[in-house]
């Protein structure tokens, strides 16, 4: 089996501060991989090591079988990278920025650039310094995709994008994935990973705490149920973290939806919501 990304015992310390600690991770070629973790967990440190921007304290990381630190130039030829905060030279126009980025690659075909600018409704004449956060993100997306890389590394890719653009962005990613491209996507939004990735890893405090197929995570992950009124929770399996308030209750539920709906029907419920739990709750779900 061929791997696009291989990380072995990777440790990165910034002086006394912890970056990541003894990480092991492999991403297969053609796989859509989700990398989930709260802010400061070590997601960006892992990505910056993969790109050869920082040197590992210990261990190693390889992309396409090449050492990230020693052969970053060769690796970059096949990577499209979208940073969480896309920052470019403010005095350049969007077109100049994209052309400048493309000029470094062997594939200098501009047709893909034009097509992507149209799909993301980018005004290429505007100066990058005048753009909003969301529009800069779109420039970053086009810059990452325009040279048709075989591996996409996306760090918090949807920040700043409106829902329509987010949908278009995932449409483009789905097309790339169908072409056999590998996608490594970091996010703290669980649903983004759940809906698109095949495999996911959770990182917390610099350590990988879970790596599983997304279907399995989704099957096991709980939902936060909040209701006004009351139901008999003892009749339900898969209930955790029950918190009762003056006029209602809240709990984590990982059982079958049908049983929950029946329990809600039997109880005295005025109103209820079922939401995706935040990451801390997912972690708790897995570690309690």
């Amino acid at each position: 089996m061929k791997y696009a990304i291989e990380i072995e015992n990777l440790t990165k310390n910034y002086g006394k501060h912890r970056g990541v600690d003894s990480i092991d991770l492999c991403v297969k070629e053609g796989e859509w991989f989700g990398f989930i973790g709260p802010n400061g967990a070590g997601k960006s440190t892992t990505i910056r090591t993969l790109l050869g921007l920082i040197k590992p304290t210990k261990g190693e990381s390889r992309v396409f079988g090449l050492d990230s630190w020693k052969e970053s130039e060769r690796i970059m030829e096949g990577i499209g990278y979208l940073p969480s905060e896309a920052i470019f030279y403010p005095e350049m126009s969007v077109k100049e920025t994209l052309d400048y980025a493309l000029s470094f690659f062997k594939n200098k075909d501009k047709r893909r650039q034009e097509e992507l600018c149209e799909r993301f409704q980018l005004d290429t004449k505007r100066k990058v310094g005048e753009l909003s956060y969301g529009n800069r993100k779109k420039v970053g997306i086009v810059s990452a995709l325009q040279h048709s890389p075989s591996l996409l590394i996306l760090d918090e890719p949807t920040g700043g994008l409106d829902p329509l653009m987010q949908r278009e962005f995932f449409n483009v990613l789905e097309e790339e994935h169908k072409k056999g491209k590998t996608i490594f996507m970091s996010s703290h939004i669980l649903s983004e990973i759940e809906h698109h990735a095949e495999t996911a890893a959770f990182i917390r405090d610099g350590k990988i705490i879970l790596k599983k197929e997304v279907a399995e995570i989704a099957k096991n992950s709980a939902r936060r149920v909040t209701l006004r009124g009351s139901i008999n929770v003892e009749s339900l399996d898969g209930i955790k973290e029950v918190v009762k308030s003056k006029d209602g209750m809240s709990f984590l539920y990982s059982g079958e939806s049908k049983l929950l709906i029946e329990a809600l029907g039997r109880g005295e419920v005025k109103d209820f919501t079922v939401t995706e739990p935040d990451l801390e709750e997912v972690f708790l779900h897995y570690y309690k």
Partner: peptide
């Protein structure tokens, strides 16, 4: 300082 290093060095150049 201008935070463009991440853009420049994610391009294939030593």
């Amino acid at each position: 300082k201008g935070r463009t290093a991440e853009f420049l060095f994610s391009l294939p150049i030593k």
